[in-house]
Amino acid sequence: MNDDGRSDISLRVNDVTHGLNVDNRTTLLDALRDALDLTGSKKGCDRGQCGACTVLLDGRRVVSCLTLAVAAEGTEITTVEGLAPDGELRPLQRAFIQLDGFQCGYCTSGQLCSAVGMLAEHAAGWPSAATVDVSADASAQELDAVEVRERMSGNLCRCGAYPSIVRAVLETADQQAVTR
């Protein structure tokens, strides 16, 4: 539904459907934060230059600051609040705490959602700019620190928690590999 500047949409966020009437200009980030009070996704730059607003759309990581809310209708949206829906933290979140993968915490939601998406991308065999031979089957290639750093580079962290984040992601990847 749509008149000139507003639309009635339904957003499915963390397995809950929300009916909203939004100004078409509303980004997904603003809809999450202002309309749904899901303030875990952060506005670090509002320009796709920092990654703090990263969420998952149908399991794929995107920056919600450059995604229009109207354009996100029909997707399954997962935010940081949806990573532990029943309150029990998932292994990646626990690894962030145990290995101190954050300091101020402002980029953390984005780092977490990005890491979830990134691990799925690697598991699907996607190469990265750090992959030596892109023509080879990347799913066979082990995820190492160099790969994680390249794949996570869309998430800036000014506190400099990078080394701990990489360790937390690798530890989680190892656990997933064991259980897969």
Partner: peptide, 28 residues
């Protein structure tokens, strides 16, 4: 960038796309 035939036959194209922006932005 991830398509096997792009990677096999035009690897520089896959590399170029992967060198751009970030994982999030490439998904969009």
């Amino acid at each position: 960038a991830a398509h096997p035939e792009v990677r096999r036959r035009y690897p520089a194209l896959s590399q170029a796309v992967l060198a751009g922006a970030s994982g999030q932005l490439r998904n969009m």
